[in-house]
Simulated scan of single mutants.
Amino acid sequence: MRIALFSDIHANLPALNAFFTDIEKRNVDAMYCLGDLVGYNTWPNEIIEEIRKRNISTIAGNHDEAIGNMVKTQKEIDVTILNNGAISKEFTNQLLTEDNRLFLQTLPAHIRLEFKFNNEKINVLLVHGSPNTINEYIFEERPKNEIIEMMNTSKADILCFGHTHKPFHKVLNVETNGVSSFKHAINIGSVGKPKDNNTKGCYVVLEFNKNASLLNDKGVNVEFIRFKYDIEAAATAVENSILPNVFAENLRNGN
């Protein structure tokens, strides 16, 4: 079983199109999107429509939730008094069709997958920020005990998330009544707005090893895949809009 996970597209259509081209080579069995379809670029409707057309199971990101719940207006956006985040939200709010707004409003908060291999029941939890809240950041330097506690509370053996745009995989050794097992915490990175000083988009393919316990460090293979896309097309679209030019520079610099 091979599962593709991607997140944080942020209205970057050139990046999403390049992702779809790349994923066709990967022979995956299922695909899930962990949210933040919109914000920071000029193609929110096109992104949503591609996700819907392909029937990709998707959860809400914090930008999806915030913008989806805004009331549409056509008032002039005063870039002199709003911060960059507010400009992005107002700009996206004005572009968004009502049908696509309803789609964002009705996205689930998380997706739980349950697998049974070799007499083991494995819970995979897909969230945007964390199991606690949609906008909580889980960085790689987060203490191990905090992540394990979070996963125990949410009954997750494998926790997959985005939001920080910085990919990593932590294999967490857990001792229970003298028995050692492993949990996996996986930040899947960002398709359309990477922030790890790498300008390439990022996503993850999970592959389960049917011949090994999923609760040991050999049972799950986590492959981080980086792909090129037309950064200049995405950056120029920002510069030709009222969005702050710093969004374009961030794409060019990977931050």
Rank of each mutant, 00 (worst) to 15 (best):
K144L: 12
F139N: 11
K228E: 15
N132H: 15
F139M: 04
Q94I: 01
V38D: 02
E65D: 14
K53G: 10
V79A: 05
E46N: 06
E232T: 09
N245E: 11
F161Q: 02
A66I: 13
Q74P: 00
N55E: 15
C202Q: 10
G39A: 10
K195F: 13
N253C: 09
F247Y: 15
L159E: 08
P14D: 14
T133I: 01
I147W: 07
T176S: 12
F224E: 07
H128Q: 06
L113V: 13
R54P: 00
V246M: 11
A109R: 13
W43H: 14
N211E: 14
V171K: 15
F224M: 12
R112N: 08
G129E: 06
M70F: 05
V127I: 06
K210R: 14
G129C: 07
A60G: 08
N177W: 10
F19M: 13
I51P: 00
E98M: 12
N84I: 03
N177Y: 12
L172S: 07
N83K: 10
I122K: 04
I47G: 00
A15Q: 12
A15T: 04
L107K: 00
E46L: 03
N173R: 15
E146G: 03
K53Q: 15
V220A: 05
Y229H: 11
Q74V: 05
K193M: 13
T73L: 02
E140F: 04
K116I: 08
R252I: 10
T80F: 12
K89C: 07
N187F: 04
Y229Q: 01
L107V: 03
F103D: 02
N209F: 12
N62F: 00
R52P: 02
F224R: 08
L126W: 01
H184T: 06
N17E: 15
Y229D: 03
Y40E: 07
F208K: 10
N45Q: 11
N145G: 00
K155D: 15
I242E: 01
L125Y: 01
G162V: 00
A4L: 13
F208G: 10
M31D: 02
L34V: 02
A212I: 01
N100F: 01
N45E: 09
G129M: 07
R2F: 04
K144V: 11
L159K: 07
G189A: 03
V246Q: 10
Q105F: 02
G219L: 02
E175I: 13
P108V: 09
I147Y: 02
L104P: 01
Y229T: 03
N84E: 15
F227G: 03
N216M: 10
T92P: 05
H110M: 12
N255K: 13
G68S: 04
E223T: 08
K89N: 13
F227E: 04
G219M: 02
T73S: 13
K218I: 08
S190I: 03
Y40C: 05
E239G: 00
V205P: 04
R142F: 09
N12Q: 07
F117R: 12
N135I: 00
N84Q: 08
A60Q: 05
V28T: 14
N69T: 09
D22G: 04
P244Q: 03
S130M: 08
V205C: 11
N123R: 13
K193I: 06
N132G: 09
F103H: 10
V71K: 14
L107C: 06
N27A: 13
H110R: 10
